[in-house]
Design a protein around this nucleic acid. Structure first.
Lengths: 104, 104
DNA sequence: ATTTTATATCGCAAATATACGATTAAACAA
DNA sequence: TTGTTTAATCGTATATTTGCGATATAAAAT
C-alpha cells in the first residue's frame, strides 16, 4: 500500500511537478526544441530522433497529457504544436520557484 | 539491450532533462519551496512532509545530485541551501526553451 | 476496393523511481 | 565512555517509465 503519496501534496506543487516530469527526458526536450523551431510533423520528429516510431509516439503522448503540446490532424499526418498558454504558465511557475530566495 | 538511450542526445538536452527530472516530484518541489523560504534544516523538512525520514533523505539526495541544492553540516544537523548558480542556470534553460516560438 | 502511408496503441521486458523500516554513522551531551 | 539526537544508507517491495516490435487505425492514393 501507499506506493505513491503524491496526492498528499498541494495542487500547485503537483501541477508543477507534472510539468517538470514531462520535461524530464532528453527525447522530450529535443521534441519541444524541434516544435519551437517550426518542425511540427510527427514523421519528421521520428526521423530525427534515435528512437523507434512507437517510442516517439509515446513521448509525444506524454507531452500532450502534460498539456505542453497539441496535435492536429493534417491529412494523413499529424502536426504537433506547442501549447503556448501552457508553456508560458510552466515558465512562470519556474520563475516564481527560483525567484526571491531568502535561503542562507 | 539498450534500455536507456539517453546518452544519444545532446549534452544540453540531457542536462536540462536531468534538472527537470529532479523537479518532477511534488515532494521535491515542496522541499525547494521550503528552502527558498529559509527553512533549511533537514529535520524541519522531514517534519513538514508526509513522508518518512529515509524517503525525504532520498529526495534531498536527488536534488543534491542534480546540483540544485547544497548540504552543509551544522553540528548534529544538516543545513540545506539552494545552489543559486545552478538554479539560475536552470531557469535560463527553461526561458530559452519557451522563448521565440516559431511553431504554427 | 485495395494498397500505401502515417500515426497510435498493445503487449511485453528491462530499468528506474518511490516508499518504508532497519541499520549505520557522526556529532554532541551526560 | 555511554547515551542521545540527527541524518544517511541499506535492503526490499511495489509502481512507473522506457523501449521495442507487432498490430490496429485512419486518411490518401491507386
Amino acid at each position: 500500500m501507499a506506493y505513491h503519496k503524491k496526492e498528499e501534496f498541494e495542487a500547485d506543487e503537483i501541477q508543477l511537478a507534472n510539468i517538470a516530469k514531462a520535461l524530464g527526458h532528453p527525447a522530450r526536450i529535443a521534441i519541444l526544441k524541434m516544435l519551437s523551431n517550426g518542425e511540427c510533423i510527427c514523421g519528421d520528429i521520428v526521423n530525427e530522433l534515435p528512437l523507434s516510431q512507437s517510442t516517439v509516439s509515446q513521448h509525444l503522448k506524454e507531452l500532450k497529457t502534460a498539456g505542453l503540446i497539441k496535435g492536429e490532424i493534417d491529412g494523413p499526418r499529424v502536426c504537433y504544436c506547442l501549447d503556448m498558454k501552457a508553456c508560458k504558465k510552466a515558465l512562470s511557475f519556474f520563475q516564481s520557484m527560483f525567484k526571491e530566495i531568502k535561503c542562507c
